[in-house]
């Protein structure tokens, strides 16, 4: 028996919105410690890693480990049927081939059930090594979304350069070029507006705009985002989901010359 309840279905909607751009379907691995999801997009350029801790749920029960393959478009249809302040409960039997979403209105006067067929997906799981990143940039998530959106107009890829002084995003295209530089904020009144940089050594990496823009669909989940970078390894974009867990996106960099 598996059962997980969240007081507000709005959070679950936001989580789903943050992954359905990249993935058509995904396996939710449920265990005692919570719900996990790891999946690459079709082209194997980016990877989504979602972790929802069991203690973040209002009620959580998972007797046996369970992998539920879901079609995210169908799941999204179901969640559209819920109001943001409805309570949502996800239920499944052990070895079930369906999952049930139950929405309860705040005053308990309306209860709706939606049952969805599960899929058996054989997805490749990737082992992600622990890495000490050369640079970790923390910045307001909305600012990051804005930068990605703006730069995408100029080119297919964004170059991110990180030094002690600040972080520079740039894009070049046929029509011209764009540069955005953010400096570390010196005094912080509001924590969510801070830009901070932890740097071991400077890095400069290039990434495809298209994927960065898909990642920023997670912006509503968190006020801050962190970008972790090292030379020649995938970028990690992390959003914390308050009191519940986190979502991490990994993105393979563009490689200038690959003769070998």
């Amino acid at each position: 028996m598996f059962e997980a309840r969240l007081v507000s279905s709005g959070t679950l909607k936001k989580v789903l919105d943050s992954i359905k751009d990249l993935l058509n379907e995904a396996t939710f691995d449920c265990s005692d410690s919570g719900i996990q999801l790891q999946a690459m997009d079709n082209s194997h350029v980016s990877l989504v890693s979602l972790n929802l801790r069991s203690d973040g749920f209002d009620k959580y029960r998972c007797d046996r480990n369970l992998s539920m393959g879901m079609n995210l478009a169908n799941m999204s249809k179901i969640l559209k049927c819920a109001n943001n302040n409805d309570t949502v409960t996800i239920k499944a039997q052990d070895n079930a081939d369906t999952v049930t979403f139950m929405f309860e209105s705040q005053n308990q006067e309306k209860i709706s059930d939606y049952e969805m067929k599960l899929m058996n997906l054989d997805q490749e799981h990737l082992g992600i090594p622990e890495t000490d990143y050369a640079c970790i940039v923390r910045m307001p998530s909305q600012e990051f979304a804005r930068i990605c959106r703006d730069l995408a107009q100029f080119g297919d890829s964004v170059n991110i350069q990180c030094t002690k002084e600040g972080v520079r995003f740039s894009a070049t295209g046929d029509s011209g070029s764009a540069n955005i530089k953010l400096s570390q904020t010196s005094s912080v009144d509001k924590e969510e507006e801070a830009v901070s940089i932890e740097m071991q050594e400077p890095v400069s990496l290039t990434f495809a705009c298209q994927y960065l823009n898909s990642f920023t669909k997670a912006t509503p989940l968190s006020t801050q985002v962190s970008l972790s970078m090292s030379a020649d390894v995938p970028l990690v974009v992390e959003y914390t989901i308050p009191d519940l867990g986190h979502i991490r996106y990994y993105l393979a960099p563009k490689i200038e010359d690959d003769d070998n």
Binding site: S46, Q123, G127, I128
Partner: peptide, 26 residues
């Protein structure tokens, strides 16, 4: 043009422990 790197060339695929069962309908 710079070639896009592939994620699976950075991270190793962990061999799947469960073979796909016969019940897949899709």
């Amino acid at each position: 043009t710079a070639t896009q790197g592939r994620l699976d060339s950075f991270f190793k695929v962990i061999p799947s422990s469960t073979p796909p069962s016969l019940k897949r309908k899709v």
